[in-house]
Every structure is written in C-alpha cells, then in structure tokens.
Design a protein around this nucleic acid. Sequence first.
DNA 1: CTGAAAGCGCTTACAG
DNA 2: CTGAAAGCGCTTACAG
Lengths: 349, 349
Amino acid sequence: MKGIRQLAEHLDISIGTVSRALNGKPDVNDETRRRVLAAAEELGYVANQSGRSLRQGMTNVIGLMLEVSRETIENSDDFFLGVTDGLQSVFSRHKLDLVMLPCPDDEDPHEYLKRMVARRLVDALILSATRRTDRRIELLEKARIPFVALGRSASGGSYTWMDLDFEGVAARGVDRLVAKGHRRIAVAAPSSDINLGYLFVDAYRQALQRHGIAFDPALVIRVKSSEQGGYQAGHELLMIEERPTAIILIHELMAIGLYRRLAEAGIVPGRDLAVVGFREEPRTHFLQPTLTSFRMSLRDLGAQLGETLLATMPAYADHYPQGARNRIWPLELVPGESDAFTLNQKNRA
Amino acid sequence: MKGIRQLAEHLDISIGTVSRALNGKPDVNDETRRRVLAAAEELGYVANQSGRSLRQGMTNVIGLMLEVSRETIENSDDFFLGVTDGLQSVFSRHKLDLVMLPCPDDEDPHEYLKRMVARRLVDALILSATRRTDRRIELLEKARIPFVALGRSASGGSYTWMDLDFEGVAARGVDRLVAKGHRRIAVAAPSSDINLGYLFVDAYRQALQRHGIAFDPALVIRVKSSEQGGYQAGHELLMIEERPTAIILIHELMAIGLYRRLAEAGIVPGRDLAVVGFREEPRTHFLQPTLTSFRMSLRDLGAQLGETLLATMPAYADHYPQGARNRIWPLELVPGESDAFTLNQKNRA
DNA sequence: CTGAAAGCGCTTACAG
DNA sequence: CTGAAAGCGCTTACAG
C-alpha cells in the first residue's frame, strides 16, 4: 500500500473522506468509516508522517535528548530506560511516540540540539543532565519549542523543570548521621558543572549549619559521577587528616566503587565508616553491608515528567490542568546497615 | 527564521536557488552561494525536515529499535550506548542522524515496528535482540525498508545481519576448560527465545563432542539473561548431583549474580569452580577473583554495523563496496583467575 | 455526509 | 547560472 490516494481509489471515494474517517473526525457516515478502517487495516495503510507533519505543523513525536559520553556509557544505569518507560505510558494515551536522541560525545550538545530543533523532527523535547549554565535552555526558549528540563539550571527564563530532591537527600542524610553522633560528615559531589552538584552541596552546608556544625571545604570531595568516582572518593577520604566518620554520596554507582576502596583499606561500612548512598539501584542491592539509600520510582517520575511536558504543549494542555509547573521529586530513605552504628564518645572528634 | 521562502525574500533571490546553494549543488554562482550560506547561518535557517522528506522520499534519519522490558531496565549495561557511539561515528559522515526507538514493554514489538515503518520516520532500521523466530524481519523485508539485524534469526529470507561470535565463545571456553582437566562443564543459557541461546548451546555441544565428552542436558542451565539469572544459575548448579567443575556464562552480568550465590555457599571461583564469563563489562572488572571473559570494542562493532547498514541502502552503497554481507564479530579471550586452576585427578569425576 | 481544491516547505526537472 | 512551476502525501476549510 502506498498512499492515501491508492487507498481512496481502492474504496472508490475521495481522499478527503478517507482522511476524515481515519482521523476519527465526526461527519463521516458510520458505514463509510467502517469500510475505510477495514481497508486500511487489510492493506496495511498508515499515513506518511512527513505528509501529516507538513500539513499539520507537528510530528507527534517527542524527543528525549541524551548525552552519550565515554563516562555515561561505562556507567550506564537504569535511570534513562526507567524514565523512558514512564514517559511512554503517558505519551501513548495521545498517540505520541518517544524517540531518544543520543548526542555523540564529539559533538557540541548545543549544536546537536539546534540541528534537531531546526529539522523539526519532534514537537517537544526533554532535556536532561542540565548544567549550572546551560545554553540549551535559551536555545529552546528562543525557538519556542515546548520542553521540560529534567534538572534545574541557572540559565534561561521561566521554563518548566522537574528535578530530584537533592536538597532533601542532603538534609535527611545529615540529620540522620548527626542523630547517630557524627560531626565530621563528608560528601562526594560531582566535579562537573552539572547543576545538581551546586544544589546538593548548598543543602549539605545548610543542614550542617542547622546542627551548629562548621562547614569544612576539605570534606567536599569532588569526583566523577561514576563507580570510579566513588572509588576515588574513598581514596581521598582516607587521606583526610582527622578522617570523617561518615560520607554521603550523590550518585547511584558511587557506593560500589567506594565499598571497593574501603575494602582494600580494611574499612567496613557501617562499622568503621557510615555511608549514605544516593538512589537505590539494582546494582547496589547486593552490597554488603546493605546500603542506606533513597528510593524512588523511575516509572512514576517518567510519567509525571511526561504529563508536565504535555501541559506545556498547547495541543495537550487541556488534559493536564495542573501540569505545567515545576516539581521536585521526592526520594524515600531506605535504611540499611551501612550507617547503622552510633558513634560513641571515644570515636568522636 | 521561518522557511526557505523568507530566506529567499531576505536575499531577494528565488527559493530554488537558495535550495541549490544550501544543498551544495553545482551550477550556483560562488558569490550567490556564499551569500546564501551566510544568511542561513545568521538567521539560523535549517530546512524543515518534513518538507525535505516529503519531496525526497527520505528522512536522513536511521532508527535503532530497542525493546525496553523491566528486565532490560534493571540490567542496563553499556552495550547499546556503546554501539550507538560507533553507529554515529559512521552516520555522521553522511549527515545522517540516529534515533533510538524504545518499544515499550506493554506493546507488541511487531506492531510497534509496523507503526514506525508506516510513519516513515526513518530511512533504515537496526534491529536487535533477534529471536529464533522473529516476525520483525519479514515485516521489514516486505516493507522494503533497508535494515540490518544485530543478531541472527531463523526467520526471513536473505537479509543482512551482524552478530557476536557466540560459537567462538562456546568453543574456546570449552577448549580452555578441557585443557585444564574439566569434563563436567555447565553452561548458563538464556531461557527466552532469543536466538543466541540456540547458537551457543549448539556450539557448546559440538565442542564437547570434539573432545569426546558426552552432552548432558542437565548441565544446560536455563536462566534469565541478567544478574539475577546468574544468581539463579549458581543456585541450580549447586543442586546438580555430581556437580560440574566449571561453568560458561552467556551474558555479561550473569557473573556478578553467580559470584554472589557462590559466595553464599562458600565456593570460591577459580579454586572450587572454574568460571568463564561472557563479555567484559565495567561492572565485571572488579570481581574477585578476576573473571576470565571476552573482550570486544562496542564502538568498533557499532561502526561496522553502521557501515553494513549503509551498504544495504542504495543511496550510500557506493561508499561501502564490501559492506552488505553478514558478519560474525570476534571476541578476544582475556584470561582471569576465575578458571586459573588445573583440576587434579582426585577432583575429576 | 462527501468531494474538490488549496497548501504545508521543500527539491528538482525544465526553460531560458 | 537563475527563476518559475510542479509535486511529494497529507489535512482541512469550503461548497454543495
């Protein structure tokens, strides 16, 4: 089956009527509609997207931009596929398809995005891994393409974003550790310009202040957001004079590398050092001792993200009246053994 | 900047000339071309893809279909992102963009693919996770869409595929283990209909035969292709009477789960049981004792896959004269400690 | 309820 | 070397 013209000829009616029948418009005779639908099914006709897009000015495709660096490849976790799952559960209600747009490492993300926008492959976009200063946001605002940022940024005007509650992780991590007697609490924060690093360290500093603990810059260990980064964090932690008694991590895979480095040094998490991990992930499930970490549903996050995006799109906003606002996604603390001990006086600094 | 019409008005020339200049056609005055290019750059004009696609009958987009199940989400590894990287390195030479098409778990892959094909979002497709019987192949053959399957299948006619050398893994694994004195060698094979399971078990059986060892169906442990599957494989292995002295795995993450189950039973890989893992992966690097496994470059595989696909596309075939043939991708054995011991007579069955 | 026609934004023979 | 025009496959006012 080629195009709508062939289908119309086959049915011996006009292409306008075929189109109306296929698109569920009213004002089509029931019997006619039935015949058209049956013939389309039988002949495997589906409208050519370029033709539709050109006429309608929209593609019915949503893009999720991904940045694929060596580091993200080697530290693939379940985050994006999990979120994708939730996104699609929302988009499928509206016959929208999701495509993932992987920006290669050797291409400038800004240029890549510009090209995708200009080509009008998608009606709307989801950004991720937002940086403190992120030119992509201004680009999309200027191009007037609906988008949602998964992650906050200091760039841009009044765009819509969703983000994880990094502040909550910092605050609850510190509260919990202080309650167990810790005063020297380190954090492993990202060394990159990714925005969450700023949010996390700020919140950590504020939490310390609340407890009357002085902020010590030496306890902010800057490493890559990866398993290797966790290993490195462990390494640097061991070299701090007046060694911290606890550490909070801000990437899911850091715990694995950290445990490894600690094991090499004969240090047992939950006995010699309190460890609070970040997001619970299949790979961290089997750490021994079990890791205190934070739980969230990737699928639910994806679904909410999808609804938020649709709420910013004129064609779908009516379905999501509450939708177009910024949201912080909560994480639930799941206690493990990695920070289970209470510091006695002798150990305290 | 809206469309080519506005750009042409701005330059006070016809849209035809603008188009020719932009697309690098000959027969355009150098000065005219220069002006057009400069104006397009300045005004940020890029051709609307729907308009181009409709006229040219191609989209300049290649799709990589992914099946996203709960299991694949939870067992995300570096495979697809790594391959994507290599694919893009080839596609970018021809100004082709790659999009990943994630088929949701709750949608029939065949229907999903049908929709993508019918909508003509992409010019060509890459399939992955091919099954023994895979209707997607016939669908694409019938639709006359260029495609390459990453993975063999018993379905379809004379399509082009690329696949990993599962037979080589089985053969070299068995050879190596037999040389170390093993006779009872188990394999952990996928429980699904994925085609590689058939190839692997057949090759395993042939390798045993070559060494005059009887094939024992009880030693083919069917589990999920995942970390959990590896754990399960360990569990089942322990229950086999006349326990195997070695096991070969056919999924990268199985080793992690297997090690865990063995540790629970107090069994040490490389001392009490010989373990040959599958593909070397960042997550398996840190297993102790180090894992004997197979190495390959995902990026090189992706690049080869990209060239093979382009060779099947009339518009690009000329660039890749050697391209459109089936290829088995080799893996290099990397010895580790997990199978380093030689079985002494006492231990032999 | 249906048909005829316009037009979305491009590229490309064709004429000059 | 450039312009005018056709037409890719659709959807949608508009007329009847």
